[in-house]
Each structure stands twice: as C-alpha cells, then as structure tokens.
Amino acid sequence: GPEQEAMQVIWGYHKKDRLRLVTSGEAMEMDMVIAFNTEGCCVTDTYMITENIEAFETWDRVDRDLTAKWKQVVDLFDQLEVLDREREGTQGAEDTLFSFIREEVLCEGGNDTLPQNRAKDDVEILHNCARHFQEWYGEDRWRDLRRIEYDLNWKILESELLQRSIEPVFEGEEGAQNRCLLGLLNRVVGFSKKSCPMLPMNPRHIDFVVEAVMKKYGGDRREHEVRHIVHCIEHDVDFLITVDEDLTARFNGKRHELSKHPACCSIKLTLVTPSQLVNRLIAQ
C-alpha cells in the first residue's frame, strides 16, 4: 500500500545519507523475538537470529514465505544505525519517563495484557502440556538445551488441544492462536529444561515457569511502543515512524506534557506515519 511505498522512499533517503535512520538494539531485538515467537519460532540468541530462523525452517509445517520475509527484515535491521546500546534499559530515570509517557501522555491504564479469559486458557493449556513432558521427552532430548524440538512440541500441544476439542490447525488465520501457543510452549520447554534437569516437574515449578513465560512473551505489544518512544526522547530523535495512527494522534496531541517531566531532555519528538514523513522530507 501507500505506506509501503513511502517506506521505500524513506529507505532511499537513508541510503543516500539524506536522513539518519536509527533504531534501538535491544528494543528492536525484543520486537523481533516477540513477533517471531507469536508465529511459533523461538529466537534464543539475538546474535544468531538468522540461524534461529533457519532452525525453525527445517520443520516442514513452516510458512517459508513468512520466514524469507523475516530474514529480509533482519538484513535491513543490520543496515540501520543502532542507538547507543550501553544506555538502554539501565537507569531508573528511564523507568519514570516510561510510566510518565504511558500514563500522562498516552493516557493508558495499567493493564495492557491479553484479555483475561484468553490468558487463563493459555496458562492452563501450557500447564497441562508441561505435566506430560516426560511422556514425550526422553532423557537425552531433555538434556539437550540448545535444540528446539518444534515437531515434538507441536505434538504435545496438539494432544492437549484435541483433549479440549480445539481443532489443531497450524496454518493460516485459523491457526494463529495455536502458533502463538506453540511459541509459548517452546519457551516453557526451554525454561523447564534449564531449571529442571529431571522430569517430571512438580506442579508448583510448572506454575512458576508458565507464569514467567507468560509475563515475558504472552502480553501485548503496547508496552514496547512506549519503550521506543523513551529511546527516541533520550537520543533527541526528530521523528518516530509508525503506522499506528491512533498512537500518533494520542502522542502528538499531548506531547507538550513532556516538558513537565524532569528526566525529559528533549521534547522535539513527533510521531509520523511513513507517508507523513515523506511529505516533510519533500517539503524540506
């Protein structure tokens, strides 16, 4: 669509050094990790994202068009300027700015996780899968901390879905929720292998693992948007490019509030859609 075309124009400006196109390392990597996890792919090492995607591709149910696209994005990411990694996510000031933007500028409530009932179902499904790990994983496979057994984990999930009369579809729109569950299950397996060398796990440990996984990978993405905004402000960035027009309107409408925050060193940030940025670049 038009926003894709506008991004091509922006990329051209970047390649000709007429625009500084930047991103932040950790926040960007976390976005990718979450996005791929939602599709079932487990990135365990952000220095080896492509290898992690290729390991996922060896499973025959994977949509190769999608993974080809991911690899392209990873390649594009490598061509961006990454803002100072050292300063990311360390200081308390960043956290107060984070809450300030979320509450005072974007006026968001405290709860941005999944709808409660869906989260509850996910937890129950993952917990039940974990209760049966010893029926599927032999000792050798359980000891292998590196390899992700996509096919085996899918079989474990499939069996639990069938128990609940949920159609175990993986592909397409219909399979979206199941792919997301597989992504979460891969994490549960990984964390369980590391924290419990011998199966079975006791139910309290399962609760602990599932809760940790849900907290890190099971929420929605709005919190990440705020992280990006914080990084932009800290690095005195002019524009944050997003296709979320609702976010753009809310932030730009109340960004003057930023001057009230003591840790806020720059208030010039404006959120723009790709086409809005192109218009500004042309007008320059």
Partner: peptide, 15 residues
C-alpha cells in the same frame, strides 16, 4: 540531517 527512528513493524513494510 533529520533523525527518524524505525521499529520492527514499520521496518517490515520494506520486506
């Protein structure tokens, strides 16, 4: 030179 920040979802419009 202006600085523009891009995140994953916007960057993926290029792929």
């Amino acid at each position: 030179r202006l600085t523009a920040y891009v995140g994953y979802h916007t960057l993926s419009l290029l792929a």
